[in-house]
Amino acid sequence: MTRLIAPLLFGLSGAAILIGLGTWQLQRLDWKRGVLEQIETTIAGSAKPLPRLVSPEDQKYQPVSLSGTVGEGALYVLVSAKRIGAGWRVISPFTTEDGRTVLLDRGFTPVDLKQAPARAETLTIEGNLHWPDDRNSSTPANDTEANTWFARDIGPMAEALGTEPLLVVTRSMTPPDPGLTLMPVDTAGIPNDHLQYAITWFSLAGVWLLMTGAFVWRRSKED
Rank of each mutant, 00 (worst) to 15 (best):
L53V: 15
L53R: 14
L53H: 14
V54M: 13
V54D: 05
V54R: 08
S55V: 12
S55M: 11
S55P: 01
S55G: 05
P56G: 10
P56S: 12
P56Y: 12
P56V: 04
P56L: 06
E57W: 01
E57Y: 05
D58M: 09
D58R: 13
D58Y: 02
Q59V: 10
Q59T: 09
Q59K: 06
Q59P: 01
K60R: 13
K60I: 11
K60Q: 14
Y61I: 04
Y61V: 07
Y61M: 04
Q62T: 15
Q62N: 09
Q62H: 08
Q62A: 15
Q62P: 03
P63E: 11
P63T: 12
P63G: 10
P63S: 09
P63V: 11
V64M: 06
V64K: 03
V64R: 05
S65Y: 09
S65Q: 14
S65M: 10
L66Y: 07
L66Q: 07
S67F: 02
S67D: 08
S67Q: 13
G68N: 03
T69H: 15
T69V: 14
V70T: 15
G71D: 12
E72G: 13
G73T: 02
A74Q: 05
L75H: 03
L75P: 00
L75K: 05
L75V: 08
Y76L: 01
Y76R: 04
Y76T: 08
Y76E: 04
Y76H: 13
V77N: 02
V77K: 00
L78N: 08
L78F: 12
L78S: 07
L78H: 11
V79K: 08
V79P: 01
V79N: 03
S80A: 14
S80T: 15
S80N: 14
A81L: 14
A81R: 14
A81K: 13
A81P: 01
K82D: 11
R83C: 01
R83W: 00
R83A: 11
I84V: 15
I84G: 03
I84F: 01
I84K: 09
G85D: 00
G85K: 00
G85P: 09
A86K: 13
A86Y: 12
A86S: 15
G87K: 03
G87F: 02
G87T: 03
W88E: 00
W88C: 01
W88P: 02
R89L: 14
R89M: 11
R89F: 09
V90M: 00
V90G: 02
V90D: 02
V90N: 00
I91V: 13
I91K: 00
S92A: 15
S92T: 15
S92I: 06
P93L: 06
P93S: 05
P93D: 10
P93F: 04
F94R: 11
F94M: 09
F94V: 09
F94D: 08
T95V: 07
T95H: 08
T95Y: 09
T95D: 10
T95W: 10
T96A: 07
T96S: 13
T96C: 06
E97P: 00
E97Q: 14
D98N: 14
D98P: 02
D98G: 03
D98Y: 06
D98T: 12
D98I: 07
G99P: 06
G99L: 05
G99Q: 04
G99E: 02
G99I: 01
G99M: 03
R100D: 05
R100Y: 02
R100N: 08
R100S: 10
R100E: 10
